[in-house]
């Protein structure tokens, strides 16, 4: 797989970028919320259509090369965010406590919302792998090592990983845009929320905020960038040493109460709980 030599994907990407940037950002107001449609979101959708296997426009190695290209380009976003942070270091230290504490929200928010929903939907041990983290590449390794490559936990992680690749960015981009339009949270707080530790999801959500609050664009990138830096460096250790044990504990405690899967019913009938 040679990323640079897969010239067809670059031609497709170039055409898609020109087309979507010409269309530009569109807003649709729905009651109190505004849906923000950014060129990058159309770009993802058009790209997905081009790569649709039935159309046979792209071959599998080309799709893999696109994925590798995505990985390389994410570092440019990190650089762009970093050069914005440099001059604002002093300003960031003023909100140092907020910046460090909100990481707890990033690390545990996946479990707090995801775990009860998974149990109510009747999902079994997949719940642990699915909800203990945002399930990007490093998180897969943790679960594979802990539970083995043929475990339900790893299936859960992989499922969320695939969903993230397919529509994580679009979802968070739209969601962040809606939250921005509702005036519940300060743009700085939302910006920190964007640092979820996935390049494409961070790009889509902080991009949406920037489009919603153009006059605060620079500050938004500073806070989103700093938060993302923390999430992606500390996140892996926190996931391993805190989030995973916490998720396992909560699963053990909560699944007999709100779990609906066949395993839980059997267990409660057996009187083990």
């Amino acid at each position: 797989m040679d990323v640079v030599k897969s010239w067809r994907i670059h031609v497709f990407a170039l055409v898609i970028v020109i087309l979507t940037e010409l269309i530009g950002t569109k807003k649709i107001t729905l009651g109190p919320a505004t849906l923000l449609f950014l060129p990058m979101l159309y770009a993802m959708v058009i790209g997905a259509v081009v790569s649709w296997p039935r159309l046979k426009l792209l071959k599998l190695p080309e799709m893999k090369a696109s994925s590798a290209a995505l990985g390389v380009l994410t570092f440019m976003l990190i650089t762009k965010l970093g050069v914005g942070i440099g001059p604002a270091i002093g300003k960031l230290l003023n909100s140092g406590l907020a910046l460090s504490m909100q990481e707890l929200g990033h690390f545990l928010g996946t479990v707090i919302l995801g775990l009860p929903v998974a149990l109510l939907l009747g999902i079994g041990r997949e719940t642990i792998g699915a909800t203990y983290s945002i399930d990007r590449e490093p998180n897969i390794a943790i679960i594979a090592e802990r539970f083995g490559s043929d475990s339900p936990e790893l299936r859960g992680t992989m499922a969320v990983y695939i969903c993230g690749t397919l529509f994580g960015a679009i979802w968070l981009g739209m969601f962040a845009g809606v939250m921005a339009s509702m005036n519940i949270f300060h743009p700085y707080a939302l910006a920190m929320g964007c640092g979820v530790g996935s390049g494409s999801m961070m790009a889509a959500s902080s991009g949406a905020l920037q489009a919603a609050f153009p006059e605060m664009g620079k500050d938004i990138l500073i806070y989103a960038g700093a938060s993302n830096l923390l999430t992606s460096t500390i996140g892996i250790y926190f996931a391993l040493f805190v989030s995973l044990p916490v998720t396992e504990y909560l699963y053990k405690k909560l699944s007999p109460i709100i779990g609906r899967g066949p395993i839980h019913q059997a267990a409660s009938k057996g009187g083990t709980n």
């Binding site: 898609i16 058009i46 893999k64 390049g199």
Partner: peptide, 30 residues
Amino acid sequence: FLALCTPILAYAGLAVGKDLEDFKKISWKI
């Protein structure tokens, strides 16, 4: 920043096809 984002998500889109087979096996609940 947004000018950097659009190419990235274009490539993300072009990679979608490789995961579709796996996606079909996933339950709507997940």
